[in-house]
């Protein structure tokens, strides 16, 4: 158990680190498939990755209910760290969360468990921060959609079963939908709901 007094530091310079992290996330979201680097955060409780922690410090607050997957919720450390540093409520119901942080892609619940937003307010939807094994090696995907000049290739060990089926369902709901941010260490790749993925040979 960690007490508040022992709680490790977040960003060294809150204002500027949040700005630089946000720009990385914004660039990732605006240019799906590109790998962006994120500013390091120290003292992140396992199994949360430093990249996911930086995003949390940048975007979470009392207005963003956060859902943690079973692996992250296994000890109270991550939830405590999030509450202490961001004041975000950590909630049990993924259907109303603004952000979901997932450390075990193999056990990612199906997208229907999260918020898709409504037709009138498609922005009221969950952003899933998905910790993955790698964003440079692994199966190849061809990406198309807004933010991509024609097509681009992403090689990533995402590890979500039926990933393409889930994304196809997500695409069919547009403008409602889930947005994904993949994190590996301090690297991130975003897959907003507009990005279309096809598996590539080799």
């Amino acid at each position: 158990m960690t007490t508040v007094a022992e709680m490790p530091a977040g960003f060294a310079d809150k204002v500027l680190a949040a700005q630089s992290t946000f720009r990385s996330v914004m660039d990732a979201m605006a240019r799906p498939g590109t790998v962006q680097r994120i500013q390091a955060v120290s003292g992140v409780p396992a199994p949360m990755m430093r990249g996911a922690a930086a995003i949390a410090l940048t975007l979470f607050d009392q207005d963003t209910p956060v859902w943690l997957d079973t692996r992250l919720a296994a000890t109270m450390d991550v939830a405590k760290w999030i509450k202490f540093h961001t004041s975000a409520p950590v909630i049990a119901d993924p259907a109303v969360c603004a952000f979901a942080v997932v450390a075990d892609p193999a056990a990612l619940p199906s997208f229907e468990h999260f918020a898709f937003g409504s037709g009138e307010y498609p922005d009221r939807s969950t952003t899933i921060i998905l910790q993955v094994a790698g964003l440079t090696e692994g199966p190849a995907y061809e990406l198309r959609g807004p933010g991509i000049d024609g097509a681009t290739i992403l090689r990533a060990a995402i590890g979500v079963p039926d990933l393409l089926d889930r994304l196809a369902l997500n695409a069919s709901l547009f403008p409602r939908g889930i947005d994904l941010v993949l994190v590996s260490g301090e690297s991130i790749v975003a897959l907003p709901r507009t990005t279309r993925l096809v598996a590539k040979e080799g």
């Binding site: 996330v25 914004m26 979201m29 605006a30 963003t64 933010g147 939908g177 947005d179 907003p192 507009t194």
Partner: peptide, 10 residues
């Protein structure tokens, strides 16, 4: 910033 990210996604 959260609004900007959703705006880019939609």
């Amino acid at each position: 910033r959260r609004a900007i990210l959703k705006a880019i996604a939609i």
